[in-house]
Amino acid sequence: MSDVVSPRPQDDTELAVEGALRPQSLTEFVGQHKVRGQLQLLLDAARIQQRSSDHILLSGPPGLGKTTLAMIVAYESERPLRMSSGPAIQHAGDLAALLSSLTPGEVLFIDEIHRMARSAEEMLYLAMEDFRIDIMVGKGAGATSIPLELAPFTLVGATTRSGLLPSPLRDRFGFTAHLEYYEPSELESVIERSALVLGIDLDDTQRSEIARRSRGTPRIANRLLRRVRDWTLVHGAGREVSLAGVQAALNLYDVDAIGLDRLDRAVLDALVRRFRGGPVGLSTLAVTVGEEADTVESVVEPYLVRIGFMGRTPRGRVATPEAYVHLGLPVPADMT
C-alpha cells in the first residue's frame, strides 16, 4: 500500500517574491505617467491637509495595475487597506457590514465594482458623500430607518467596464483615471525589474522578445517571465537565459511572436477559413471555437481589434488583410 503524499503549501519565499513583483510606491510604478502624476498630486494634497484622499475610480483592461495602484494609494497615505470585490457584495447588508467595520482613514478597495448588487450601489452613494448609511429595521408600514455614522474612508474602485457603472456612482468619485496599454519599452522596464526579483539575467534582446509577446499588459509580461524562468530551471541553465530559450519557453505555451495564444488563433482561423473573413455573428464565432460568447468578446476580441486583425461591423465580425498575412494566407482580391 503506497503512502499518500499531501501537496506542500506554497513556500514563504515564493509568496515574498509574489509580493515583491508589485511596486510599492508611485516612483517604482512603471508606465501610466499621466495617471501617476494625477494620483501623486491628489495624495500630496490630502497629506498636507491631513485628511483622507478623495475617492478614486480606476478603469481599464485587466492586468494594467489597478490593484497595485490601490495598494500604493494605501501605502503612500500611510493608511490600512481593506480589499473586497463587486461579486462578493450581493446585498446591501454585505456592504453595511464592510463599511461599518472600517477604521478612520482606511482605504477600501473594491475590484470589479460594476458587478455590485444594485441595492448595495444605492447604499454606497450616501456612504461616499456623507460617510453615513441608513439601516432599515422592520418590514412594511412599521419599518424605520436608522442612520449609522461611518468613519471617514477613501474608496478606490476598479472596473474593466466603466460604462456599466450608474452615473450617480461614477459622479461621486473625486478622481477617475483610465489606464492605457503599455508601450513595448515600458514593458521592458517592467520585465527588467521583475527579472531582478526572480533572480534571472536577461539582456535587451530577451526582454524585447518577452515584451513583444505580452499584449501591452504587465500582468502577462510577468506571467511569461515566470514561464521563461521555469524553462531555464528545468533545462539546467541556472540564471543564464538565451534568446532561443526565451522563444522555446513561450512557444511551448502557444504564445506566438506577437502575443496571440491558442484561443486567439482559433478565433482568427475560424473567421478567415471557415467564414471567409466574415461578417459573422459573435455567438456563431464562439460556438465554432467551443467557447462562451462572453469569453470571446471580453478576452479575445479587444486584442485582435487593437492590433488591426479584426473589425466590428453592424453585420458582425470581419477579418482584415493583416489577419490573412499573419496566418500566411493570400489576401482576397476584394480586400487589396
Rank of each mutant, 00 (worst) to 15 (best):
S59F: 13
S6H: 05
T288S: 12
D3H: 03
E209R: 15
R170T: 00
G174W: 09
L165D: 04
D44S: 06
S298N: 13
V234C: 07
S25L: 10
L148T: 00
S283I: 13
T320K: 02
N251R: 12
A151G: 01
S283A: 06
D203E: 02
R306Y: 09
R207S: 12
T320E: 04
E301F: 15
R226F: 00
S6F: 03
L198A: 12
M310F: 03
R262S: 03
D264L: 07
E106V: 12
P87R: 03
L99Y: 13
R22W: 13
G163A: 03
L148P: 03
Q38Y: 02
P62C: 03
L282A: 11
A249R: 09
T205P: 04
R274K: 11
I133M: 04
A151S: 05
A249D: 14
R227Y: 08
V300I: 15
A323H: 01
F153G: 02
T205V: 14
S119L: 05
M83H: 11
G311F: 11
L196E: 04
D203S: 14
Q206K: 00
L81Q: 04
S119T: 14
G31M: 04
G60V: 04
A237K: 08
S59K: 10
G199P: 07
I110S: 01
I89F: 11
L164C: 06
G163Y: 10
V246C: 15
A96C: 00
D230E: 08
G316Y: 00
L233H: 06
A248K: 14
R262C: 14
S298D: 07
A195C: 07
G142I: 09
S84Q: 13
A248I: 08
R213W: 06
L250V: 15
T67R: 03
V228I: 04
A46V: 01
E297D: 15
L42N: 11
L126Q: 05
M123D: 01
V299H: 04
R265T: 10
G105K: 03
Y324G: 02
L202E: 10
L108V: 15
D54Q: 07
R82G: 02
E192C: 13
V272R: 15
D269M: 00
L39R: 05
A117V: 04
G19T: 06
A92D: 06
H178C: 01
Q38E: 06
T284V: 11
E180M: 11
E322W: 07
A221L: 12
D3S: 08
L150Y: 06
I200H: 09
V107F: 06
F309I: 04
A158E: 05
L304H: 10
P80Y: 06
T232D: 14
Y303P: 04
A20N: 13
R219S: 14
V300T: 15
L198M: 10
S77K: 11
L329F: 01
L271C: 00
G31W: 07
H55S: 10
L327S: 05
G65M: 10
V300S: 09
A244P: 11
A96H: 00
V267F: 12
L252D: 09
G245P: 13
L243S: 07
A177V: 05
E240I: 12
